[in-house]
């Protein structure tokens, strides 16, 4: 495999031409994760403490989005985006929207489960000690809930990164598509390219796993919270 093709797998035509390859996967992953988190926080609050109509709406969104395959979410945004804003179907934007919806729904569920796992006695103790509901949330529920959800959040991050590979279906030149193009150009080296693609995916997502383990160790319950 030539250095030129390896570069194509990693960054596509960037910086002279269109970015592609692993760079696109990393960009989509980062954007979808952060957008998802930004949507998930208010949704989780709505699900846990909102008035009944909001609670129901949030639950309905989460359940529907989680029950739909990611590929269909991407196809839906490919269909609906031009109807909403006009213009031609945009594969990259649609891929991002699909991934962001998937990520928002799953992160809401992780946040909800994490906060719900804080024992009710802890909340009652806070209230009994004279703290307000808000203070109880800030000082008791959130610090413990966040620590509880770290493992689930990182395993979701790994699966979201892997899921960015499905965007190749709508024609985004991500790592997988770049590998397929390269393999088509040199059919005799097909195994080399598949191996290279697998190695890139592995290294990138394994880095996320390692980061998760590192944070988990630091934030584990073994060490008391600094006051």
């Amino acid at each position: 495999m030539s250095a030129e093709l390896l570069r194509f797998l990693l960054v596509g035509g960037w910086p002279d031409g269109a970015p592609g390859g692993l760079l696109i996967n990393l960009a989509l992953f980062t954007a979808a994760f952060l957008i998802g988190l930004a949507i998930a926080v208010p949704l989780a609050v709505m699900r846990l403490a909102g008035p009944p109509p909001l609670r129901f709406a949030a639950a309905a969104f989460v359940e529907l989005a989680r029950a739909t395959p990611l590929l269909l979410l991407v196809f839906w945004s490919l269909f609906l985006l031009p109807l909403a804003v006009g213009g031609y179907p945009n594969p990259l934007a649609s891929a991002l929207i699909g991934l962001a919806v998937h990520s928002a729904a799953n992160q809401t569920e992780i946040l909800r489960a994490g906060f719900a796992a804080v024992p009710a006695g802890e909340v009652e103790a806070g209230l009994a000690a004279g703290m307000s509901r808000f203070q109880t949330s800030i000082h008791i529920v959130i610090p413990q809930g966040v620590r509880r959800m770290v493992p689930a959040h990182f395993s979701f991050a790994v699966s979201l990164f892997k899921d960015t590979a499905v965007v190749y279906v709508v024609g985004v030149v991500d790592l997988l598509q770049a590998g397929l193009i390269a393999a088509e150009r040199r059919p005799s080296e097909i195994l080399t390219y598949y191996l290279a693609v697998a190695a890139c995916f592995f290294l990138a997502s394994f880095t996320i796993t390692l980061a998760g383990r590192c944070i988990e160790r630091r934030w584990s319950f073994a060490r008391p919270v600094a006051a």
Binding site: V158, V166, L180, L191, Y194, F201, F202, F206, T209
Partner: peptide, 23 residues
């Protein structure tokens, strides 16, 4: 398990269809 956990499912689908027969 640690290898396979970090590789996308859609990669496996393409791998078994296109690359596996070459092996």
């Amino acid at each position: 398990v640690n290898l396979a956990r970090h590789i996308p499912g859609v990669f496996w689908v393409l791998f078994f269809y296109f690359a596996f027969p070459e092996l």
